[in-house]
Amino acid sequence: MTGPGSLPVTGFPEPGPPRFESIAAVRTGLAGIDYLADEGIAGVVYLADRLAKPVLVEGPAGTGKTELAKSVARLTGSRLIRLQCYEGLDESKALYEWNYKKQLLRIQAESGRGWEELEEDIFSEDFLLPRPLLEAIRSPEPVVLLIDEVDRVELETEALLLEVLSEYQVSIPELGTVRATGIPLVFLTSNNTRELSEALKRRCLYLHLDYPDVERERAIVLARVPGIGADLADQIARIVRSIRSLELKKSPSVSETLDWARTLVVLGVESVDADVARDTLHILLKYRSDIERAAKELAGGAAGT
């Protein structure tokens, strides 16, 4: 199938020059823009580039999935194109849509012309409304495509993504196939509320983003909370680890750790003791029963277990 000359139509996109020199370079690069990755995360980003494969990032809420894609875009100086998924998302919002109002106007204005001719005209690029996927494919500049919360779309809608993710192209029946000029870095995120299709998972590299370990969380706090001291950041990371080890309804996420840290800084706290913890735990935890449980544990209520 061929399309009009104005659209970039070439063969399978040539892999561009590598974006990263090494895994370590990814890691230090990201750290330079305040995203703290571990070896595993950096390794997958590195591979995504070398293998020209999308990355499926899964994990609990607030562990830096979305932020990873944004940070990689910044690091590589790429444009970030984001497709936010939701239930009911369809082709016309993900890929492209024909601007039917404009088409109708044209049909009315040119009522004297034959349909054949008219059809050619109204199904041309002028009447096309590109949505994020098509936009990412057509973009002349380097792109990071973020398909956020992909588990929210229906299984059938997932199929729409497959062509883009494996061939880096979009077929438009009326126009032809639009192929990417360069291969974009693609990140899909999922909160794991639905089993994604095997076909989708096969096409992606998989990255499970869990809560960071103490060292990484401390570094994240230091990087993201202005004016915080090293001791306090360390203490915060340790207390959060301790709280996550309790079986709670909802463990604190990294964003909640950061909220808590910011609050403590605003309150002028230099060191967290059991009283301070009890008074501020509601920022870290959302459920009343979790807050009570954690407050008790931190005060030594069930020490030695």
Binding site: I23, L51, L56, K201
Partner: peptide, 26 residues
């Protein structure tokens, strides 16, 4: 393909990289 890009001596890196290609569920 992963084996071509990750130094085999770096075992932790190899473990997570092969895992990314082979295991799609935590």
């Amino acid at each position: 393909e992963v084996l071509r890009h990750i130094p085999l001596e770096d075992r932790p890196a190899l473990k997570s990289a092969l895992g990314a290609a082979l295991v799609k569920s935590s």
